[in-house]
Write a protein that binds this DNA or RNA. Structure first.
Lengths: 205, 205
DNA sequence: TTTCTTATGTTAACTTCGTTAACATTATCC
DNA sequence: GGATAATGTTAACGAAGTTAACATAAGAAA
């Protein structure tokens, strides 16, 4: 009689963990509950993962990969430099809004420490590389000077943090995107706002 | 014989909670440990707070108030509109960097739900009002039209999310501010980057 | 095929946590 | 002074992460 569980327990656990994470977030993901839902003993996950962090790391790696893919495809579909930056920002926020729990997992404090999971570190680095490559790869006829390279790097950071801030504030409910507008045009508008040009209040109608 | 604990337990608990939060973050703040460190029974905190969320809410309220104060004072010290926006952003990030755990508490997912703690909601609203007032209060000789008001609001959102993104990425170690520059000028540089103007690579030396 | 080893399960325990109930003491108000 | 509320305490419950000890399956070695 099949008293023991069969087959590919590791993948079943991972899939189930994905499901739980999606509707309840990293906090609601309890190892014991995961084991129960999977129909396996409460200690079984420890045979396949390095404890709770191990499972979170595995899920986070998958999330980073999807994230990087979506950024990459947004970047590829816009050859123009400026449009590409904007499209990247929109894709960044869109991923966060469509997968808030995954976004929180990969950026939040319950993400397992990068230096304990090299594959997680790699997945993270890869996602950020996509960003930076897309932002800094202007069609360069000449080599960049040092100052230009630094400026390009700063522009990448600025673009990144803008998207990140919007993403965070939106999924935390602090910014509520208008219902009569689609998300990406709202985001594009915010990204393009130039703070150095104050609102003109003296204009006559 | 004084078998029972004396004095102002509530405030001692709060102060101790502040300490724990500062070095270990909301995750490391366990009610039982807090009680033990305070030298009081493990159930005592429940006489003064509505469970763990109650304590976190109290700490978060105090954090919001300090946050708002620092934003306010940054705004007050810069009468010029543009400078004020920038100074606000710098103060925002500075608070996050100097109090990363508090910043995480008031914005993160372990913040108690705003709708269960009206005072927490008020503290949050107040902090954001400071931001929005500072950003939208240009010296207005005329009334703003609807479109101008909307634009001002969007500028406030943009300024806010930029600062928020920088703050988050810096305290998460994703952006490492250069050591040879002070934080606020680094932040000011990032805030002022205008993404719509691409890096010029054709310039001859 | 038989046997040894390893991978994979299971059960049972340990510790910590948040929370509550039941009981004890102190403070406050009439 | 005595009732009543506020503030302590201890003890327990259930859930969590983790580990140890043991059981079974699968595969390599003989």
């Amino acid at each position: 009689m099949g008293k023991y569980h069969h087959g590919d327990v590791r993948n079943v656990l991972l899939q189930q963990a994905e499901n739980i994470l999606t509707d309840e977030g990293p906090a609601g993901l309890s190892l014991r509950r995961l084991a129960r839902l999977t129909g396996v003993s409460e200690a079984a996950p420890y045979r396949h993962f390095d404890g709770k962090d191990g499972i979170l790391a595995a899920v986070a790696i998958a999330a980073f990969e999807r994230f990087a893919e979506q950024l990459e495809s947004a970047a590829e579909s816009h050859p123009d430099h400026e449009e590409r930056i904007m499209a990247l920002g929109a894709a960044y926020v869109q991923f966060a809004v469509e997968n808030p729990q995954h976004f929180r997992l990969i950026f939040g404090r319950e993400r397992p420490p990068l230096d304990q999971y090299p594959e997680l570190r790699d997945a993270a680095d890869n996602a950020f590389d996509v960003l930076q490559r897309a932002v800094t790869s202007v069609d360069r006829k000449a080599e960049m000077t040092l100052a230009e390279a630094a400026s390009a790097y700063n522009r990448a950071l600025a673009a990144w943090s803008r998207a990140h801030g919007i993403a965070m504030l939106v999924i935390d409910g602090m910014i509520v995107p208008p219902a009569d507008q689609d998300l990406s045009s709202f985001v594009l508008g915010l990204l393009a706002e130039d703070l150095t040009m104050p609102v003109n209040t003296d204009k006559a109608p």
